[in-house]
Each structure stands twice: as structure tokens, then as C-alpha cells.
Design a protein around this nucleic acid. Structure first.
Lengths: 262, 262
DNA sequence: CGTACGTTTGATCTTTCTCAATAATGGTGG
DNA sequence: CCACCATTATTGAGAAAGATCAAACGTACG
């Protein structure tokens, strides 16, 4: 067990984000049997072609969904953040059609497949909430198809950065009006259908244009609105609960740079 | 009402494809209240941004999911075939993140949202079956990301054709070892993230190489195995029920061309 | 302190897009 | 049944975005 916090609390927060749940339902979720594991970057949570006997919830760290083509190239399909149930897809399907790997070091909680199935099928409100989670994932996936299918390199990268920013902010994972990009430029390339070389050039260009600010892997957004425009980004498809905002990065929180440099 | 066949029979077949259902559950599905409508090509079944009050099931004809970018280009996300519940996504989500339009003339059956919600939440086995349908849709979507993100034009087109062929065959909609492509080359382009001009050239090339045979919109597959190889196609991601076959187009059914021509 | 991995940059090559024009097709009204 | 119109399909030539190949530079970590 990790510290004082219940490993599934992030998951519970996620599940209840869209759906008020009774205390009973909430307790039932927290009472789910689970085993906590620490994992290194690259470790597999799900392997394409396998039948997983348990469903992992990401507790700390980041992971990514991924699928390989016949000639060995890789498409990254989604980035999982803490709280995400990493393979809801596989609760009711018998063969995993893609893999999930850790992006960073982190910890997961494994829940037996049957326990989760039972919970979802016997508690209608929990069922509804979990269905919503999978539908939102599908919505994000649709936007990825659009991103990779219709936008040019600059737009794609800007869009992905916006998506990360908003999703991380929604879970309070933004720092200094920016975030620690958990992926290499090569992984970013595999997520956008580009080459790492080209990703590098585009990042440079975005920075030159004052749309992002990079310091190591930390990325900040000096002009959040402009970046959204470049990336053709609108947050609706994320189906975030507090969607009254209308599309701004929460409180543009006094754009402060660490004055170390430049 | 159309002829002697129950409008929802195709949907029922779909739902029960992966999950044995009790007679009660089956009756409950067929007893769903619904209204049948005839629609012309281009008619909207769902409009992005709207909150649909009912869920349409496609009875006859084809439809497609679609999303527009800010600069007006369109990405086709999926093609719906008869039997598909066209907006399961929207049963439990309040704002549609994409549109669905008819591809051909056809008929749909509209089911009130609440009726379907009730059915899914109160009958665990039906719930499980419907969740499976949405998960399969997500799986297909993932493969589309891969297709558009990692494959070159020739591979993309070949892959999409293979997917159509297998999905149509699974519902007995193949004729003469081929099918009637329900879309223009421009729509095919929007589905693959290419230009209609380029789609045209690639189709020609595929035909020259003896991988497909075109006669009007009817497409046949003289060398089904080779086409799958070119398109890097494996049917696993479709999660078809009878998945013992291993990956061949059902019975290569005595490759017969209409001897009209060439 | 050196090795492995990630980033950055340059030069060149390909695929695919754009623009533009011409031919088929299918459907419609007379 | 035929002429006509609006789509859709096809083809060519030139432009561009992004890929590929190759090398140098940083940085992190054992």
C-alpha cells in the first residue's frame, strides 16, 4: 500500500466526475479487491493479443496505449494519466487489440476482471458511470483520428499539447502554468504520425513563435489562446465535467516563468 | 413499418452476436418503442453539438460518422452498416461530439434515449452486450488511427477496402465476391486522410496490380490474400464472433467475374 | 568519466497535395 | 426515349510538406 491515500481514490474521483454516486456505490468501488505494483518505464500493463485477467488502474505515473503495424511502426493511441482505468476495454472483450505500456515510472492497482464486471453489472449507477468513461475515451480517440487525418504537423503538435494541458489541469497536475511532458519527441512523433526529426523542428518553430516555452521537458504556454487557435483545439470532446468555462485554460494563473534563464 | 421484417431485427442480431441472451432479454429489445423513418443521402442522424433525444438504429442503407475541423475539412470516422445502433455514444453522454449522416438512401428506427438507457441499466446481460458493441466500435476506431497515422496511401486504401469487405461479408452483404462501395472517392479520401485525386490514382494502381477489380462502384477482390497483405489487414480488431477462420475472406466463393467486360 | 539515449541540425529525396482541365455517369424533365 | 445538368471520376504538371539519411551535440546516470 502507498502512504495514506487509497490507491483507488483517483479512479473513484474519475468515475464520479460525471455521475453522482451513492455512498454505497462509492464504498463498493473502494472495496474492490486490488493489488498495488510499482512499474518501470516500458513495462507492459496490457499486451496486444492477450486476455488480461485483471484490469489495472493507474495510480501514479503515465502510460500509453499503443498499436504496432505489420512493418514495425508504432502508433500511440492515447496517454493515460493517474486515475485512469487502463483497460476498461478488456473487461468485456476477450482479446486485447492493443498494448498499454508505462511511459514513466509509476504504480498501478490491479483489479480482478470479474470483480469489476460484477460491480458494473449489478450496480446500475456505477455501470452508467463506467460506460461514460469508456464513451469519453472513444470521443478522445475520434479527435485523434481527426488530428492525424486532417491537420498538418504544426496543428497536430499544438493540438496534442493543448489536450495534455487541459487533461492534466483538470486533475491538478499542472505546475508553473505548464507541465512536465512525460514523453520523448520520438513518442510524440508516434502519437501524431510524424517523424521525430519533424517533431523537433515543429517544436522549435512553435517556440520561436512564442507559442510554447520549453525548459528541459517542462513546457509552458505563454500564449494559451494562440496555441489553441493554431491547434484548432476546443475542449468539448474531452467531455470535462466543469465544462462551463468555455475553453480557456482554467485560471491563466499569472503567467510566471522561472527566471533562471533567458 | 417496413414489410414483414421487424425493424430492430438487425440490431438484435448485432447485440446477440457476442452474447447469448435469454428470450426475455431478446423480447425486451424487440419491444423497444421506435419509429421508422426513410432518409435521403446526406440527411443527419446526429448533429455535432446537439443533445439527441433518441438513438437511431440503421435498418437499411449506410451512414457515416464525421467530424469537421476548424478550417472546414472533414474526417470520416466510421461507416455504419445496417443493424448498427448509430449513436450508442450519446445514450449516456449529453453532447454529441460528432455528426452522423446518411451515405445512401435508407431507413432508420429511432428509439427514445430513456427507453434504451433503462434497458441497458436494468438488464445486466443486455448491458453487457451493448457495452461490448461500444467497445468494438472503439477498437475499430483505434485501427483507424493506426491506418491514418502510420500507413501510406496504398496501404490505407487497401486496408479500408479489406475492412469493408469483412464487415459486409459478416452480415451477408457481399455480392459476386465483392461489394457495392457506398461512397464516392472524395468520401474515401476523407476517411483515409488523403485527397480524392490521390485516392483515384491509388485505386487505379491497385487495379493495375490485379488487387482489386472495379466495375462502376462495385469492387471485387481477385486476390484477397494479396490485398490483405498490402493493407496490413488482420481482422482481429473487428472482434467478429466467428473468429476461428483466422483471417480469410469467408469462402473465397469461386472467384467469378461478370463476364461482361475484359 | 564514459556510454546510452535523446535532441538538434543540415541536405536531399518522395509522397502527396494543388491547381486545372477533361471525360464519364446518373438522374431529370420534356 | 433523349438532351441536359450536376456530380463524380480521371489525368497531367508543378509545388510543398514531411520523410530519410547522416552527423554532431547534450544530458543523465551508473
Amino acid at each position: 500500500m502507498t502512504s495514506d491515500k487509497h490507491p483507488l481514490s483517483g479512479f473513484l474521483r474519475d468515475v464520479t466526475a460525471h455521475e453522482r454516486l451513492s455512498d454505497e456505490d462509492r464504498d463498493a468501488i473502494l472495496a474492490l479487491p486490488h493489488r498495488v505494483r510499482k512499474l518501470d518505464p516500458g513495462a507492459y500493463l496490457v499486451r496486444e493479443g492477450s486476455l488480461p485477467s485483471q484490469c489495472s488502474v493507474l495510480v501514479e505515473g503515465f502510460a500509453y496505449r499503443q498499436k504496432m503495424t505489420g512493418d514495425g511502426s508504432r502508433q500511440i493511441l492515447a496517454v493515460c494519466v493517474p486515475g485512469d482505468a487502463v483497460d476498461l476495454q478488456n473487461i468485456f472483450l476477450d482479446i486485447s487489440d492493443h498494448s498499454v505500456q508505462m511511459l514513466t515510472r509509476g504504480t498501478v492497482a490491479d483489479i480482478p476482471r470479474e470483480a469489476l464486471q460484477q460491480l458494473v453489472l449489478t450496480r446500475p449507477e456505477v455501470g452508467r458511470a463506467v460506460i461514460q468513461l469508456t464513451l469519453i475515451e472513444a470521443s478522445i480517440l475520434r479527435e485523434w483520428v481527426v488530428n492525424v487525418g486532417q491537420r498538418d504537423a504544426r496543428e497536430r503538435i499544438a493540438h496534442v499539447l493543448c489536450e495534455f494541458a487541459v487533461r492534466l489541469e483538470a486533475r491538478g497536475l499542472m505546475t508553473y502554468n505548464g507541465f512536465e511532458l512525460p514523453m520523448t519527441q520520438e513518442q510524440l512523433a508516434d502519437a501524431t504520425g510524424l517523424t521525430s526529426v519533424h517533431v523537433n523542428r515543429v517544436l522549435k518553430a512553435l517556440e520561436l513563435d512564442g507559442l510554447i516555452h520549453r525548459r528541459r521537458r517542462h513546457i509552458q504556454f505563454p500564449d494559451w489562446r494562440a496555441l489553441q487557435d493554431v491547434g484548432d483545439f476546443t475542449r468539448t470532446y474531452l467531455h470535462l465535467p466543469a465544462d462551463e468555462g468555455g475553453g480557456t485554460l482554467p485560471p491563466p494563473r499569472a503567467v510566471e516563468f522561472k527566471p533562471n534563464f533567458s
